[in-house]
């Protein structure tokens, strides 16, 4: 009985590949939000490999796919990763955090703070979201959890807060200043302009800053995620991304679409993934681990 099941099992495992097998694979790519262009390219090159290299069993072919995808995604890794191996000749190093509404910016700042502290850095936070209800209180609470100070203003705009915070960071000789900003949709031109102004003001107070401009991307996002990266990148010149909320059932396949779209030329690196609402729920992005989970 057991022997028979075993044979059946291995038969199934290394089953010959047919159209149905390709379809199932394609479906799983689609359902990970990889996006149609990327999905079709991957499938086409896989079919090609199956044909030219005469691969006939599914296991080998799946390994090929994972290999190819991993190679594509490795281009998004940063070495060294400035979050997990922070080394900077800039004092203070300025991190500007941007993204659409509710993506997880403020929460991620709390996590970043913790991560930098574990590397022995001194941190200051700036409450640059002067728009959303209680945004300042939210950041203040993250500051308290990490026991770091938060520069905030009762009134005034993000640029003014950033200006104050940089001066504070310089005079306190802080290693890292992280600036929170209000969520905004990339279609809101005036809000994108405001962000550009924040960046200009930062550069004026401290030439060369911000040293890192990070987009926070909600891992539940579908194909709009690509638009978000393009628009924020065009407006600000992003240096990195963090994809959040990957502790649920969403796969964040938009990362693959990104890797595919930005194949040649400069692109923001994916620095970390958010895996929960807790202060420690931030892990470095690793292409092969991410791929393994994608097909899990």
């Amino acid at each position: 009985m057991l022997g028979l099941r075993k044979t059946l099992g291995s038969l199934f495992k290394s089953s010959r590949i047919d159209e149905a097998w390709f379809d199932t694979l394609e479906d799983s790519l689609i359902q990970s939000d990889v996006g149609m262009p990327t999905c079709m390219q991957l499938m086409a090159s896989l079919r090609q490999a199956a044909k030219s290299e005469k691969v006939q069993d599914s296991e080998t072919l799946q390994a090929l796919l994972i290999q190819e995808l991993t190679r594509l995604l490795q281009a998004l890794e940063a070495h060294p990763n400035p979050i997990f191996e922070h080394q900077s000749s800039h004092h203070p190093a300025i991190w500007l955090i941007v993204g659409v509404n509710g993506a997880g910016k403020t929460t991620t700042i709390g996590k970043l703070c913790k991560q930098f502290q574990s590397q022995g850095k001194s941190i200051l936070l700036a409450a640059g979201d002067t728009f959303r209800a209680a945004a300042r209180n939210q950041l203040l609470e993250w500051g308290q959890r990490n026991q770091v100070d938060v520069i905030a203003q009762e009134s005034g705009d993000a640029a003014a807060v950033a200006h104050d915070a940089i001066h504070a960071a310089i005079s306190r000789k802080t290693d890292i200043l992280i600036i929170d900003t209000a969520g905004r949709l990339a279609t809101q031109d005036h809000l994108m302009e405001e962000l550009k102004k924040v960046k200009r003001v930062i550069a004026k107070v401290l030439p060369g800053a911000p040293h890192h401009t990070l987009l926070i991307l909600d891992g539940n996002t579908g194909q709009n995620g690509l638009n978000q990266v393009k628009a924020f990148h065009a407006a600000l010149g992003l240096t990195g991304l963090i994809v959040t909320k990957l502790d649920g059932t969403a796969k964040g396949g938009v990362i693959c679409a990104l890797a595919n779209t930005f194949q040649d030329g400069p692109k923001p690196a994916v620095l970390a993934l958010g895996k929960g609402e807790g202060i420690g729920d931030l892990i470095p992005f690793n292409a092969s681990e991410y791929c393994a989970e994608l097909f899990n």
Partner: peptide
């Protein structure tokens, strides 16, 4: 529901 939600909308 966030209108930007992707494929996982069905599971959620």
């Amino acid at each position: 529901v966030d209108a930007m939600l992707g494929q996982d909308a069905v599971n959620t």
